[in-house]
Design a protein around this nucleic acid. Structure first.
Lengths: 167, 167
DNA sequence: CGGAGAATGTTATATTATTTCATATTTGAT
DNA sequence: ATCAAATATGAAATAATATAACATTCTCCG
């Protein structure tokens, strides 16, 4: 039994979020070790802050939190850490919000980000559906376009909030 | 014979771009007239500047151009005009670039923006494929997510630049 | 005309992100 | 173990993007 259940996109309400954070940190630690990357204190702490919730966190919000322990932190401190984390697939940037979310499965190196952004609760789920990616690639190829990266951000209401809206 | 050819996503090299601009302005004028919207001088000029090329234009670049004739222009001048133009489908915002492109077919009110962004020549083409939109909607529905808007921005190389890269 | 609503003017400021150069830390070769 | 190179962080300033708030002008329409 995994938590959150695979394919769920959004974690179940009332899930043990501490576990999410702990797992994300452990996975990151392992991935960095395996690839000879330096998982420094700052990077670790920034990743932990990004994982504070399943909703995007802004760079300056991260900075505020980081400063509690890390007095010397400045914008570049955060942006550098984020650059590292994004580059290695541990964090995604949500372009339409200029904010960042933790990646639930950084192992799948090549996975594109496909995000479901709830307009009500602000939570973000990852869809990461290969059929969508393949269709986009195929349709783009149809007009001679060679795809290197896909940015897919879908706005709407998550299952829980859509239910609340109908009630 | 239309220009650019429908389905081309990117306009042909060496196309008559003046015609693109003129058509965009004429279409906007007609659309606004039909819907009782005010296509003011500022909005018209901002749309014209956005259409200066088939690549995204930043708000402050628009401001610079606008100021040539419109001395009192300030950031809100531009952002208000852009808000109007985006709201009525005449312009799209490219979220991953914080910049704006003209919409080639503002008539299709409901069309989602699906953009092909060439990393080399910076031009942006619109794909706007209903199969992609439908698939995303279906897959999202599969996890209980109710889609209201889609942001799809695909990075890569356009036909011309991909060819140049292979050469 | 004149009032209401819409658009623009004006100033200030908020938010997001990068540049630049100095310093410190880690790594790996010797 | 030590040193040089590469990497990471500190620190200050500034660039780039976007909005807030309130005053004024314009346009539509009765």
């Amino acid at each position: 039994m995994t938590q959150p259940p695979s394919g769920a996109a959004f974690p179940p309400r009332g899930h043990n979020h501490r576990k999410c954070i702990a797992e994300a940190l452990t996975t990151a630690e392992r991935m960095c070790a395996e690839n000879g990357l330096r998982f420094t204190q700052i990077r670790r702490r920034v990743l932990e802050i990004v994982w504070s919730r399943h909703a995007p966190v802004g760079a300056y919000e991260i900075l505020d939190a980081l400063r509690d322990e890390h007095r010397s932190a400045a914008p570049p401190t955060v942006y550098r850490a984020l650059e590292f984390l994004v580059e290695h697939g541990l964090v995604h940037k949500i372009e339409s919000l200029n904010a960042f979310v933790g990646c639930g499965h950084p192992e799948d190196g090549a996975h594109v980000g496909q995000f479901l952004i709830c307009a009500r609760c602000r939570q973000v789920g990852e869809l990461d559906d290969p059929d969508i990616a393949a269709l986009i690639e195929r349709k783009a190829a149809g007009v001679g376009f060679d795809v290197s990266r896909q940015t897919i951000e879908v706005q709407g209401l998550c299952r829980h909030c859509a239910g609340a809206a109908r009630a």
